[in-house]
Design a protein around this nucleic acid. Structure first.
Lengths: 218, 218, 218, 218
DNA sequence: TATGAATGAGAGTTCATTCAT
DNA sequence: TATGAATGAACTCTCATTCAT
């Protein structure tokens, strides 16, 4: 007796994605708290109730956004970028590339991911916090893996891998904020902002800084 | 300088500070949104309406908090830590020390300052944003000054000072989050957490990483 | 009489009944307010919109349910149980039997009918109230008829027939609630709960109480 | 430092009672579900938010109403009306009087209390259900106590006390509904509706019916 | 000056109903 | 005929702000 959804009546995949896309855009722009359900509905050109056809709550919408569009991508990052026959320097470059690509794809270059950790009180939003913790775990454990390996191969100095991983994660995030030109006063010049070459230049600039530090090549 | 609220009818300079101190504590603990005016009043042992005798709104209270307790301190930081007859390496060490001291004093070691930039949508809270922009300016311009000088003195490699300043600012913030043990999984060992020696060790560890990078000493 | 829904294009008399039956079950279980249209549709294995093909609104569905499944049965009750050549005591026994049978058939033994009078504000749901008033009329007028006849035949004491009818109606309802074991603390023993003998015993127990009262046989 | 509430700022007892009184009136008239918070606020001439200054939720308001104004009264009923040196017949009369007085005081003569048991799904509203269960317990246990005693004293016939208690509770409730003239068609005559004599007559009429039944005096 | 009772705009969420397919 | 995606009015509840005392 159970009917298979015909295309006509199936919950529109496009609509679901429309909501996710619209919500992402607004969440990135205004943050979680300041993005109201009605804002998302209006921006998507749909009714408020429609959102609740696809997501059980505002938190569930955000959590899915985070999990499916961000965390799951990071979940397989480690395998993508770490190989035995790759230098740790190259692995680190790939990590930087990954973070920057994610920022580009999901928040138009903004450092959205680092913001996530801040916005939610630790004791509320349990599902959301779980996703955020997973996300942090994927990022840190990958960096720690690379650094530990680099130290043991003597590619890197004998730093504390965890401390270095945090430091590098913060440095990358801030560099992304810088590239995004978040603060107009400190905008880099226009010529740097476009072109694939510049894009790859960014990664190399940052990589050099992380590898050799301020005093490194001196 | 702190006044004791001596009598019921005394002009309550101390009460103003009481509100500011209490608010800071709660804002740090719970964030701006999750700190309610009634919470501040209760924690300060005063009435809710009293807060509005001293501050016109929640945003005004927070803005003043930020300005007087945080931004104004950063405003004179540059003079404190940059001198011609000091090496740029030492100046950078002092900058790190300043950030860490602020984190210690104002947020019990938490990386509160970096959170500030995230929590408020760009287009709302104009006064608050102005303060935040000032704060960012003081931090970045100091770093840029140090780095530019270091490059010209050939203490540092010829990096882009602005990019490097962002990167370093992010690295310091993340290192503070790490030291705070925000994420239990990545807590450093207990022995590192106490003692003045360890405190100064932290600064040096971070300084070395920023100066020589991962591959630096190899 | 029940039609099997033979083919996809058959006029769905059965579907109408399916909706009514399913709705009855859920309304009895959960009450009017807590039974959602989607619950009925899901339980019936049909689409939500289909219900509106057969009933103009939730209230209309419930009203028809009440009218066709409950009120219409009570409409012909009087003729079934009152005959000149029957003792009023026997007529009362038959009335009790009828109420209990209805409770059994329509609400699995629960005192659903008395609940109906409570759940709806007097001024709303005009159609529904009209049905409820009819239902009350059938029950009361039958009881009043029996009692009036009993009094005039001197089978019964010279009570006020209307007052007695209300009282008896309430007593029967409460007895049904008791038999249903609605309140576990006051559940009767297990042995009483099954068997046809016990079922008829119930009626007689109640009948005796109504006829002779607490002090009657003393 | 803790201040004692001066009379001027103390939460107004009158306002709390105003809310309770207004809410009771509307709950009685329209039931729990159909009484909206805004209705209570409007009827009381206060703002919506004010209600939440005194009660944490709609359910809490209703539960307190029930507990403090109804259940607690029933809690001490048993002691008031059952004494060893009182006949069980008199005790039953007092019970009837109590139920009727409660109906008069709390719902303008309407059978509000019996409605309560119906309106709430068993699994929701846990606090409310707890109060309702207590209320039911007080009523039934008192009746069961009276009947058991009456049977052992041979004042009453050897009925099942629990079954009889349910039956009598239902009968009283229905009689109250009748007296209230809930259903206009069955309104008793006007002359019966007023005067203390008639009021006490009611109790005696009902008492006689419960004691001797329909056939009792015949 | 200090208070907290009172407020109401605005939030997330529900669900009976509509209607294009 | 049958559907379920889409809707928005209406609900409960929150909390920054006001103001009479």
């Amino acid at each position: 007796m159970k009917k298979v959804n015909s295309a006509a009546n199936a919950p529109s995949v496009g609509k679901r994605d429309l909501i996710l896309d619209t919500a992402l855009k607004l969440f990135v722009e205004n943050g979680y708290i300041d993005t109201k359900i009605i804002d998302i509905a209006n921006a998507a050109g749909i009714g408020k109730g429609t959102i609740y056809e696809y997501f059980s709550s505002k938190e569930a919408l955000f959590t899915e956004l985070l999990q499916h569009h961000v965390v799951s991508r990071y979940a397989c990052m480690k395998e993508e970028i770490t190989h035995n026959n790759t230098s740790c320097r190259e692995q680190l470059r790939r990590y930087i590339h990954f973070d920057m690509k994610m920022a580009q794809q999901f928040s138009n270059g903004k450092n959205f991911i680092d913001q996530l950790y801040q916005e939610f009180p630790l004791d509320q939003y349990p599902d959301l916090r779980a996703s955020l913790n997973r996300l942090l775990h994927y990022r840190l454990s990958t960096l720690i893996f690379i650094i530990t390996e680099g130290v043991s191969r003597k590619e890197f100095a004998p730093v504390d891998p965890t401390a270095a991983a945090f430091t590098i994660m913060g440095a990358i995030g801030a560099y992304i904020s810088y590239r995004c030109g978040l603060f107009s006063e400190y905008n880099h010049s226009e010529k740097d902002r476009t072109g694939e070459e510049s894009y790859s230049d960014n990664e190399n600039t940052l990589l050099e800084m992380l590898l050799h530090g301020l005093a490194g090549e001196y």
